[in-house]
Design a protein around this nucleic acid. Structure first.
Lengths: 346, 346
DNA sequence: ACTCTAAACCAAAACGTTTTGGATGTCAAG
DNA sequence: CTTGACATCCAAAACGTTTTGGTTTAGAGT
């Protein structure tokens, strides 16, 4: 039912070839003909058939992002912002974004393979990189264009964008230690996510630098959700001997921790300091506002996508990988400030 | 480079037709041949070319979801959960999900038209329906399959899933009034989103039922973000004559409002009650935990997607539209409870 | 020996593009 | 008059499927 090149050819009295080339702007078509064709195409509301074009060009102008979540309910304000960054940049570059959900493990690699060998997508945005990441190993060896948000352990030379988590957490650690905190608990995640490790390392470095023994730091396991931060903190408090500071490896868990503290009537900031990482919008409006590390997540999304588009087009990337500087946002959850105006500059 | 039917035909000594039909399971192919073809296909890791197939079948098995956001940064925990619901169900039905971002207005309709007339997608999931929604008007008249999450004003007979916002807010209103609240402020949104109107109506109904004059209720404008809830509340408090309860039309704004109250040293619950709507994960862990209306957003995503797939397949829907019952979740932000265990049953 | 049926197969067309490799006509230079 | 250059056009092939409309072969029935 939709208008095709064939119909345009009939209406204009030209051949399909000429119509196609006229619309594409080739200069072996006279100006006059181009105008005619364009006019008729507009009149009939011609839209090129995406499938036919992609089939012939062997390019779908579509990129894929596969959400590696196992919990069916996936609620992360951080991610939706990243996603809009990717989607917006993709649109600007004339690309489409295909979104899938697939838990790590069983069937994960098959999905990646299928997407590419079916010709459906030209490349991938890889998120939540793992220490030894089979997705990256495969994509790399198969020469499929991809850009990751995050790194892997075996520093392979693949294109990625990341925030310097080690440094970020070092900033947090130094800030806390500077405030006099000595008994610190780290709220971690048991998964094989590498960024968690980076952040822990950063904290350790800060401690070492200031003559503290990192091995004495307690580490609690969560799973990056607010709930798990809450639960870990509850059990921490139940165990007695509370710390002076709780350092969570992301904002969501930090908010959960604050929740548990409040519940026990413990004043966050003065009594026990809490810090996060990410600077999700909510961090600014928490009680008290959360000290954290800002990640320009929307821009990272855009950057990742832009790199990917370049890669697909066959351009050489000036900088294959990019590690962004973290920015410490001091708010009152660590006790150094008391009800001050906002510091983010957002 | 990928394996094609042609190559399978060569390897098996059969024709392309037979290979195609063998894989599709037609019964004019002998069992023996089918086995042979399947074996060879497995060996060579054959994956059908998605584009060629879609082109010929005139079905892309892809559905589109266009995020109607104007702010480039879009951070909504509510939405990412909806999205995973849609994506998971789509995957289960063998469909893919194409995600785009496009602000309402200028160019919005063109995007919808282009997606369908280019043959790229078979149908749409429409979110954030507006009172008079041009997307729905167009999709309806063009006979393009779609299912909406939310309704429009001119109760046209299109397929949708929604939660009964009127009733939900009535539950909230009655609860608050039952607790003795009389001076209520509604945190609204200036947009033409219909659900906001429903919620306001529900609150008004509750007031009327209990002999209160809804016209005396103050209404503040926000834009559904936490920040706007915060700001609206700050200006409310600055204006003096504070209410006894703040009813926000979504959780995010309620959290923002709580933020502002805390900052002024006003105790949420005992001093001023605050309620939300949505029951995002964060609501449970807020301080104090937020009284709100639960929306099974993940399931709604699944439902919407399932309906859409049915529609595309040409099936008649048993129930074109579905209005789900809201569930009141009473927590302590409205002052009726004091540090009680969680009530959600999540 | 002939027809009929059923089983198994397949060539060609079709889907709507783009690309390839010319074809045609005009005009100026030789 | 011929040649070459240039501008403009286009038929056909290709992309990888599925569908259409058959054909071929073997065996059964008469």
């Amino acid at each position: 039912m939709p208008v095709t090149l064939k119909q345009l050819a009939e209406r204009t009295g030209k051949s399909i070839t000429t119509v196609s080339r006229a619309l594409a702007g080739y200069d072996d078509v006279s100006e006059e003909t181009k105008k005619l064709v364009r006019r008729v195409a507009d009149e009939l509301h011609y839209t090129p058939n995406f499938l036919a074009r992609s089939l012939q060009k062997r390019r779908s102008r579509t990129i894929s992002l596969i959400l590696p979540t196992d919990s069916p309910r996936f609620s992360d304000p951080f991610f939706s912002e990243f996603l809009t960054g990717v989607a917006n940049m993709a649109a600007e570059c004339g690309y489409d974004l295909l979104l899938s959900v697939q838990a790590p493990g069983e069937g994960e690699m098959e999905l990646y393979q299928r997407k590419v060998s079916s010709g459906q997508v030209d490349g991938f945005v890889v998120v939540r990189t793992r220490r030894r990441d089979p997705r990256i190993a495969w994509l790399y060896k198969s020469q499929v264009p991809f850009v990751a948000f995050g790194r892997t352990e075996n520093g392979a030379d693949f294109p990625f964008v990341d925030v310097d988590g080690v440094k970020g957490m070092r900033l947090i650690g130094e800030h806390l230690i500077g405030l006099g905190h000595r008994r610190i608990v780290f709220l971690s995640s048991p998964s094989e996510l590498l960024f968690v490790e980076h952040r822990l390392d950063g904290l350790r470095q800060a401690m070492t630098t200031h003559g503290l023994d990192p091995d004495e730091m307690r580490i609690l396991q969560g799973d990056l959700t607010q709930k798990s931060g809450y639960e870990a903190t509850v059990s921490l408090l139940d165990g007695g001997n509370p710390p002076s500071a709780i350092v969570a490896c992301n904002d969501l868990m930090a908010l959960g921790a604050m929740s548990a503290l409040h519940e026990r009537g413990i004043s966050v900031g003065p009594d026990i300091a809490v810090t996060g990482f990410d600077d999700i919008p909510m961090a600014e409006h928490a009680h008290p506002p959360l000290t954290t590390i800002h990640q320009p997540i929307y821009e990272i999304g855009r950057k990742v996508c832009e790199k990917l588009v370049r890669l697909i087009a066959g351009e050489e990337l000036a900088s294959r990988s990019e590690i962004l500087e973290p920015r410490l946002i001091v708010r009152s959850s660590c006790g150094s400030l008391r009800k001050q105006p906002d510091q983010t500059g957002r």
